[in-house]
Design a binder for these strands. Structure first.
Lengths: 324, 324
DNA sequence: CTGTTAGCGCATTCAC
DNA sequence: GTGAATGCGCTAACAG
């Protein structure tokens, strides 16, 4: 495999000149450029990325760390983030922690080893301390990790209120939501806002704890069954998209008609709210914008551009569907 | 940021010894190891991955190129492949071509530039020639690209037959399937096998061409509407999961009961066949095994292990659901 | 078992 | 404008 020296020799030029042609930087006479380009073609020369990386101390790689790649929300997120990174000249490394903190730690180490230039985190299984001492371009989704680590999230309190408002307008009196036990993060603000809004209006709110460590459908299905067993009188439900699907499914199995007897509002607004027989009414997170902002933030950090704010909170809205 | 030389000096050792400690390779006296480890800790030394990459001519990165990251099938595939790669010491770079051949070409170039050690391709927008001349570890999903490029796919003819068999058993007389116009690949064998099986048994098979360049739901929804407008008498349908969802949705809108009046069989068996009110009867591709085999193949190529076969064809089965 | 040496392939000075 | 020199940080081969 030809290298830059071979090219230089064949073109009767110096390494520097060849390098300048490759990078299209600095001054090169048209004549020399031609000779060098010809030599490159003849030798089928392709610059070696690893050598460039070492020289420039940067590899144009950003790692996106998520709890579950095949979850619709994260799938959408990764898709948009990958495109945004691509537009800025970066490639995307995906890391699925599968909810295991040791894997998260290993992926964090990639930053220290400079295996990637930056990281966008959607999981937070470690102590905040760990993130801060990683010392490098880190952006967090949905969790405040401390000063210097930008965070991007959607307006969860508003999302909770929008859902609550809708269920109340539709006359619900006994509503339920799934909560994620033991996890403190901005996302939980939606459950708080939801409950506050409704309780202030004398609507009963049941909370069913689910295991945040299991983002799979079966987990929500279990919770949905538990819900109907314990609180058969419920007439409204609010939860993440998958939970909404699970509740719809169990309701269907039990012959409970939606939206007549039960209203359902999802949270996320991912693809799965639109592919079923009924479109699920949902609070939509602006996934694409979340990707744009988080990517912009991490690239700013990598390229040493100053950032004004550490927090970006994006607007949400209620998308009409057939279930509420 | 401390480097290996700093460590060597502080520990009063040579570069080689430090390197051996870092890589846990070769012989190092317990005493020297201790001194070096101490020095590494004191200096908070972390080996620089870019330098290692250059030295070893390998970066332990594999690119997975897909047409759409957020598609349930590819999401599942990436998830499993990422895990398999991780187990073998590789990180995963994802590349979403968004069906654009120029992007595919750019991602192929990463291999030439040695920005990644290998590639797993799920898209095939270029001429076979291009792939072959990329000269490097390439594995193809669902498409024969020529000798030396291993291919992994599922047993599509069997899949088509299983679906056909089921619809026939259920008494369907007028069935439809969506086909991908103008694309030749093993995956299409399922449509051929499906039609052959049924036509031999005097069942009428309608084929609705869809645009392969659009893997989104709206595309299938359009096709489903077209189908019901043109062939309202159909009593059976076969198509990829998303198409099945679309047909179910339109059927629901039009008051056509499934499975009473219309049987539906999906292909892929991804998550979306199980989250709706009805479980969709589907031919299941062994996505995890597909990931395992394709990863094993690309890693074998990267690490110069000889491979016996160029083709791996994996078994499929029909998973019972509520729609057929 | 250990330290030294010589690359890995390119980018980036800096004289010329 | 250009070429030669130096360094990026580490690995691997080698002599000791």
């Amino acid at each position: 495999m030809a290298n830059i020296r071979d090219v230089a020799e064949r073109a009767g030029a110096g390494l520097g000149t060849v390098s300048r042609v490759i990078n299209n930087s600095g001054y090169v006479s048209a004549e020399a450029r031609l000779r060098i380009e010809k030599a490159m073609e003849e030798l089928e020369f392709t610059p070696n990325q690893m050598a460039r990386n070492l020289g420039r101390q940067s590899n144009n790689l950003v790692a996106i760390i998520v709890p579950n790649i095949s979850h619709p929300f994260f799938g959408d997120y990764i898709k948009h983030a990958e495109m945004e990174l691509y537009l800025r000249g970066y490639k995307t490394v995906v890391c699925d922690t599968m909810q295991r903190s040791d894997r998260e730690q290993e992926f964090l180490d990639m930053l220290r080893r400079r295996a990637v230039d930056g990281i966008i985190l959607s999981t937070h299984a470690l102590e905040d301390e760990e993130y801060r001492k990683a010392k490098g371009p880190i952006v967090s989704m949905e969790q405040r990790l401390g000063r210097g680590i930008p965070m991007v999230c959607s307006d969860h309190p508003k999302g909770g209120r929008l859902a609550a408002q809708r269920l109340e307008e539709r006359g619900c009196r006994y509503v339920a939501q799934f909560t994620e036990a033991g996890v403190v993060k901005p996302a939980n603000a939606r459950y708080v806002a939801f409950a506050e809004y409704l309780e202030a209006r004398k609507v009963t709110v049941y909370e069913i704890p689910t295991n945040y460590n299991r983002l799979d459908f079966a987990n929500y299905l279990e919770a949905a069954n538990k819900l109907f067993n314990k609180q058969p009188q419920i007439d409204g439900f609010f939860g993440v998209d998958m939970a909404a699907c699970a509740v719809l499914k169990v309701a269907h199995q039990r012959g409970i008609h939606v939206p007549e007897k039960l209203k359902v509002v999802g949270y996320d607004g991912s693809m799965i709210t639109e592919i079923g027989p009924q479109n699920i009414t949902a609070v939509v997170q602006p996934i694409r914008e979340m990707a744009q902002h988080s990517v912009a933030a991490v690239v700013d950090l990598i390229e040493n551009r100053p950032r004004l704010r550490d927090e970006t909170i994006l607007d949400v809205y209620l998308r009409e569907g057939d279930t509420a």
